[in-house]
Structure formats: structure tokens, C-alpha cells
């Protein structure tokens, strides 16, 4: 395969709050190949959304990218100027958010919100932009797109709004789409439709996807590669088969065990004891050791990411067999 669409190297995004430094993203590296779907999995507060925002250049003060490289098509986006960054956003990289009820502006018509996304990046006539918007809507399965273009967001259901958001993300044929839990706020049936739609569309357009989620069942059906994040770091990485089929990090194991479908019927549901540690002035050592039943004294040393088998690597002193 050719050069990857995205190569993230040792990305660090820290938040400088009055209470101290929050290392929301700490030494994160991964690669996304062209046309591939990478699942970025973790609990709330694990830094997966912040990783996505860092890639988009949407980190607001007091947050700041303090280190690393984000190579998009070989160009380091961290070094781009504000204007170059804006031109990249929504053009080369697009993002879809969690709650479709909130992401569309309630007082602007759908066509306004679509057309502005086109003309922000290239010079097209109003008529052409309108036609492109209509085509994009019909592509995501919205019936009678011409009529729907002049509707307002509140006239759409949640699933339909997410389709509109996806249509907007695809408008400029981006190389990479960052999907930040786009199905979490939707019904299961709608979830299925949106997943199917995304899969189909990304295959058609060849866009790579970073699918941020806490839902392992979504990742299982969708992702080629999986990265598991915990406390701002990636703790396990590999193909979907490897990570989900044979997890080597105790945390990944715990996450998989927490999925009710994986438990025997009637048995008490498993859970990971404790909760995610505060990222504020995190002490050295493995951040998961407090909750880990395999932890030993050497876990007080910070583990490094190390490859185990081809393609699968783990950040643990005592990986599972």
C-alpha cells in the first residue's frame, strides 16, 4: 500500500488549567492507511475525542498541542498557519460529531449550511453549489433532496440530521473523516443504517475514517485497525481481529468482558473495577495499575508501547497470553 493518509507521531495535547496540566493526549502515535477504518476506542475522558480535535486543529485554549507530528498526506498540519489550517478543515479532513441534534445550526436552512461548506474551499457558482449539495443529500439516502434542501434542521429526525452531517462531511471529498461517536445518540436501528451508509460511502469515495467510539460492537463490524486509548495514551493497537479476538492488554480484555453479549446468560455482568484516573498530574507508571488484577510492583514504571506479534503492539509490562 502507498503512503498512509495520516501518520500521527508522538502527539501530545495538554491543557494548562489553573489546577495543573491535564495531559489529555500523551504520546499518541498511529497510522491510518488510505481507505481504511481505524477504530479509536476508550472510555469517556480517555482522550479519544481530544485526539480527533487535535487532528482538526480545533483545540481551544487552555489546551495546546505541545509536541509530535501530524502528517496528513505527508504535510505536518501542526506547522500550518491558521488560514492553511482552515483550508484543510472540511476539505482534506472532515469531522462528524456525536449529537446530530446539536451540530446543525438551528436557524439556518440546510442548503445554507451545505453551500457554505463548499464555497469555503473552492470557487463555484451558486447553482453548481446547490446541485452539489442536492447530490450529496441523495447520496446519503435522503429522499427528495431538492425539497429537503430548503428545510430547517428541526424538520429532520435525528437519524436524518446525522445523514445531513455526513453529507456535509463528504461534500469536498476529504481524504480522511473523523467520526466522533456519530451513532451514540441514535436508536439502534438508525445506528445500523448510519453505519451501513458510512461504510458504503467511504468505500465509494476511498476516504479513510477514524471512528471514535466506546462501543466495541460498532468497531468489530466496521474497523480494519483498532487503537485502544486509556488515560490519554494508546495502550493497545492492532488489526480488529487481533485486538478484539485476542486482546493482550488487561484493559482491552476488561472492555471486551464488559460487553453484555460476551457474558454467559444469567451470569453476573463483568465490569472493570474503579474508574478512569484524573488526567491532572497523573503519577508515573502504568495508569491502569490501580484497576488491574495483573498489576505487579514493576507497573510503577511507565510501560512503553512494544510490538508483540506482527501488527499488534501493547503498552503493558505483563501482556496477556
Amino acid at each position: 500500500m502507498s503512503e498512509p493518509v495520516l501518520r500521527v507521531e508522538e502527539l501530545r495535547t495538554h491543557f494548562f488549567t489553573k489546577a495543573g496540566v491535564v495531559k489529555a493526549v500523551d504520546d499518541v502515535s498511529f497510522i491510518v492507511n488510505r481507505g481504511e477504518v481505524m477504530g479509536l476506542v476508550g472510555e469517556s475522558g480517555s482522550g479519544k475525542s481530544m485526539t480527533g480535535y487535535s487532528l482538526m486543529g480545533l483545540i481551544d485554549p487552555p489546551g495546546r498541542i505541545v509536541g509530535g507530528r501530524i502528517l496528513l498526506d505527508g504535510i505536518d498540519v501542526i506547522k500550518l498557519s491558521g488560514e492553511e489550517m482552515r483550508q484543510m478543515r472540511g476539505n482534506r479532513v472532515a469531522m462528524i460529531f456525536q449529537d446530530p441534534m446539536m451540530t446543525l445550526n438551528p436557524v439556518l436552512r440546510i442548503d445554507t449550511q451545505m453551500i457554505e461548506a463548499i464555497v469555503a474551499h473552492r470557487k463555484v457558482s451558486a447553482g453548481d453549489a446547490h446541485a452539489m449539495a442536492a447530490a450529496a443529500l441523495s447520496k446519503v439516502g435522503i429522499p427528495s433532496p431538492e425539497e429537503r434542501l430548503s428545510a430547517y434542521p428541526h424538520q429532520f429526525s435525528g437519524g436524518m440530521r446525522q445523514r445531513v452531517a455526513i453529507a456535509i462531511a463528504l461534500l469536498n471529498k476529504p481524504d480522511l473523516i473523523i467520526a466522533d461517536e456519530p451513532t451514540t445518540a441514535l436508536d439502534v436501528t438508525i445506528q445500523g443504517q448510519i453505519l451501513y451508509e458510512m461504510q458504503k460511502l467511504t468505500r465509494e469515495t476511498g476516504a479513510a475514517v477514524i471512528w471514535i467510539t466506546h462501543d466495541l460492537s460498532v468497531v468489530a463490524g466496521l474497523a480494519d485497525q483498532v487503537s485502544v486509548m486509556y488515560a490519554g495514551r494508546i495502550v493497545e493497537q492492532g488489526t480488529a481481529e487481533q485486538v478484539l479476538g485476542r486482546p493482550r492488554h488487561p484493559y482491552t480484555r476488561g472492555l471486551l468482558d464488559s460487553v453484555p453479549a460476551n457474558n454467559a446468560r444469567g451470569a453476573r455482568l463483568k465490569q472493570i473495577p474503579g474508574m478512569t484516573p484524573s488526567l491532572l498530574d497523573l503519577p508515573p507508571g502504568c495508569p491502569f495499575r490501580e484497576r488491574c488484577s495483573y498489576a505487579q510492583s514493576d507497573c510503577a514504571r511507565t510501560p512503553l508501547m512494544r510490538p508483540l506479534t506482527a501488527g499488534q503492539s501493547v503498552r503493558c509490562h505483563h501482556p496477556l497470553a
Binding site: 480545533l58 484543510m88 469531522m95 449529537d99 445550526n105
Partner: peptide, 22 residues
């Protein structure tokens, strides 16, 4: 702080348009 502003930024709109319209 609303998501629609974040989404507008993610679309690559200029600040002028985000403030002036959205």
C-alpha cells in the same frame, strides 16, 4: 460553546462567517 459552532469550524468556514452568520 455550542456544537454547531464546532461543526462550522470543522467545515473550514472563516471566523468572519462563523461569527457573523452562525
Amino acid at each position: 460553546l455550542q456544537d454547531y459552532v464546532k461543526f462550522a469550524r470543522a467545515k473550514g468556514l472563516t471566523n468572519r462567517r462563523i461569527i457573523g452568520v452562525h
